[in-house]
């Protein structure tokens, strides 16, 4: 990882202030070695305290509630009826639709993340070039990210519609198809249609993480590559890609998590399909609580915990495969 550390321009290095007094007196008493490297726990708590408070207060507490809910028996109204032991977990694992849902989830996450990364690499490269109107293009690219997912999903249900959808109208007009495609109703088309929207809304975020990464690559590296007679493709593959690795990994991990947890697209585009045929684990969890005949918040909580385990394992596996922590 440290190999990717960029050089710093001289301007930044000289930006250090001259004689500012230290804002707190403690560090002065410590040895210089400690200043640079190690601190005891109580100093760490001072710096990390606010973050820890937020995480413990707002995330961990509800997680405890989730665990509690998963171990409880609930009436259909949400009234707690006592302890359930591990019954909710058993019920979820015994659900007939589980296999379908897991396969859907795998397809959804892998397809969306892979396509998003691929397209975003191109988009980021492009956005990093200098040309007239680049700023406007950058503003345009952010729009799918800026729009609420719920609304974008609703918009796409209209665009995809069999009868009044613009997409079918367009395809019919240019003669690509003779009869409309049932994008959201035909079993073969539902997943690809959802994936397309998933990729579309994930690109902006990913592209900007990669743009930040590209910006960190100093120009003189390319200069060196050119002097060595590398072709553009070689330069990209041998210089850009390795230096971009940290950014790619961050973007991939975060995308895995977001795409896995993505709710509105699947829920909305899949709204008129009965059963669990095109659901992922997240919409499955929601439907267990409110829409399916189970209507059981205990089972839903259990499914929620399974979900966390799945994505945790997936991310750890990814990090292991790509040797994430080479340095630390």
């Amino acid at each position: 990882m440290s190999s990717a550390r960029p050089m710093v321009s001289g301007a930044a290095a000289t930006a250090a202030p001259d004689t500012a007094p230290p804002s707190d007196s403690k560090p002065r008493r410590r040895r210089a070695r400690a200043r640079r490297g190690r601190e005891p726990l109580h100093v760490a708590l001072l710096w990390l305290g606010p973050a820890l408070a937020l995480i413990l207060g707002v995330v961990v507490w509800p997680v405890v509630e989730l665990v509690r809910a998963s171990l409880s028996r609930y009436s259909i109204t949400g009234l707690r009826r006592g302890d359930a032991g591990l019954e909710n977990f058993r019920q979820v694992l015994a659900n007939d639709a589980l296999d379908t849902v897991l396969v859907n989830t795998l397809v959804w996450v892998v397809a969306v993340v892979a396509l998003t990364m691929l397209v975003s690499l191109g988009v980021a490269q492009f956005l990093n070039k200098d040309f007239r109107g680049r700023r406007l293009v950058r503003w345009a690219v952010i729009v799918p990210w800026a729009a609420s997912l719920v609304i974008t999903a609703r918009l796409f249900t209209l665009i995809y519609s069999y009868y009044y959808g613009v997409l079918n109208a367009l395809l019919l007009k240019i003669g690509l198809i003779d009869t409309p495609i049932d994008f959201l109703g035909s079993d073969a088309w539902v997943m690809p249609s959802m994936v397309a929207v998933g990729v579309f809304v994930s690109i902006p975020f990913t592209a900007y993480v990669l743009v930040a990464g590209l910006n960190a690559i100093p120009g003189d590296v390319y200069e060196a590559a050119r002097l060595d007679g590398a072709s553009p493709w070689q330069a990209w593959r041998l210089v850009t890609l390795p230096l971009l690795r940290p950014a790619i990994m961050v973007a991939t991990v975060l995308n895995m998590i977001y795409v896995f947890n993505s709710f509105p697209i699947i829920y909305t585009l899949n709204e008129s399909n009965p059963g669990f045929g095109h659901d992922t684990t997240i919409t499955f969890m929601y439907k267990l609580a409110f829409k399916s005949a189970e209507k059981d918040v205990g089972q839903s909580a259990a499914a929620g915990l399974f979900n966390v385990c799945i994505i945790l394992i997936a991310v750890l596996a990814y990090l292991r495969i790509t040797r994430w922590r080479k340095e630390s």
Binding site: S161, Y162, Y163, Y164, P180, L184, G185, S272, N273, P274
Partner: peptide
């Protein structure tokens, strides 16, 4: 019927009716 009635919600057929179809 309209296409795929097992996967059509109420509002969709209302919209079709309102379109005169």
């Amino acid at each position: 019927t309209q296409n795929n009635p097992g996967k059509t919600n109420r509002q969709d057929v209302f919209d079709l009716f309102a379109s005169g179809k």
